[in-house]
Design a protein around this nucleic acid. Structure first.
Lengths: 193, 193
DNA sequence: CTCGTTTTATAATGTTCATTCTATAATGAC
DNA sequence: GTCATTATAGAATGAACATTATAAAACGAG
């Protein structure tokens, strides 16, 4: 009926993710997007609306692929190991991230959420998803005795969420193994004694 | 010998701080700066060089005024109280920050440090200053018995630094009293048992 | 083959950006 | 008062920005 697309939407989104992840929304120009996706501006606008809409799609895909899948991977483990594995992945990512991209969700939370109500809601929801994952782990772990009872699950979950944010920030400035590992091991120790 | 300045440098820097703090480096246009400082672009460039140089001066002043003075204030207290007072101030600031500006140092660490070697060094040094403050408190507190020995001072200091970063990020997205207070009280509990 | 529809390529749009030019104004030294 | 020097005001500069207009191209339906 009509001319077919010459590109794969997910592939283009992945390229857009890489730009936005590394440089953020404002510092990613449409020119940079056309260069790295290979699409013309016309195709980009025709397919995604505008830059903001494209960013939204990219962020949603980022969270599904990079955050959601990590949570699913870890959720299959026993609760205490799940939290450990989660932070082990974060640590590994942060220490091998040569472009210092950090976490696109954290970056967006700081760049757009404060001034943009829509992105504030979106990022808040995504952060709550991580918090809920921690919460589940702690509830289960405290129930079966693999995680200590000294603190409430809610307090622990919020605390670990903030440690996660902190590690993601620090990793973009000082991606030092000793520093980040120290922070995480300190956080995990909270679960054991 | 020459025409005198019509403005006070510190006053102008404070106005610049407010812009950069709220919107970051990239999203603060020179027009916005001339509007809020009251200076013409010519005066701004004559006095400070360029936008980047002005930002650097603003950041340095921000850290002196807002971070340095807080550290000095708290340093006068006994070690355990010093840490408590520090986080009490952070919490209070975060919960009354209606513009969701967060912390200009954290914002810069995420916006500029990853791609700019000079700002990476600057922000890293400033973060280390906070870390050293924690470290001093822990060393003294462990020596006089007001802070528990269960963890190394270095590990604790790094951990609290990351909690601080995390709170500053979360506060820009979800400035909720219960959430932030929960995180901080959890962190402070680490010092007592 | 022709028509309707969507995608592409290219060029153009008008705006905003950081920065600088030109000219005028204000001072102290002489 | 004149001069050298620095600060201002306002306009101008050219580059980069996001977005769109125009027209050609590629397909299925009829």
């Amino acid at each position: 009926m009509a001319r077919p697309r010459e590109f794969d939407e997910s592939t283009v989104l992945d390229a857009a993710i890489h730009c936005f992840w590394r440089y953020g929304f404002t510092s990613t120009s449409v020119t940079r997007l056309t260069d790295t996706t290979g699409l013309t501006a016309a195709s980009l606008y025709n397919a995604f609306g505008d830059k903001r809409e494209l960013f939204k799609r990219a962020l949603e895909r980022y969270v599904e692929v990079h955050v959601g899948e990590r949570i699913e991977r870890c959720r299959r483990l026993p609760p205490r190991e799940a939290v450990g594995a989660f932070f082990a992945e974060i640590l590994n990512r942060s220490l091998t991230d040569r472009e210092r991209k950090g976490c696109m969700l954290v970056n967006t939370a700081l760049e757009l959420a404060p001034h943009d109500a829509e992105f504030r809601e979106i990022t808040a929801g995504m952060l709550q998803r991580i918090e809920r994952f921690f919460l589940e782990c702690f509830r289960k772990g405290q129930a079966d005795g693999t995680i200590v009872h000294s603190s409430s699950p809610d307090g622990l979950a919020a605390h670990l969420l903030s440690v996660l944010m902190g590690v993601r920030v620090l990793a973009r400035v000082r991606p030092e193994k000793a520093l980040l590992e120290g922070i995480v091991s300190q956080a995990l120790a909270l679960l054991d004694r």
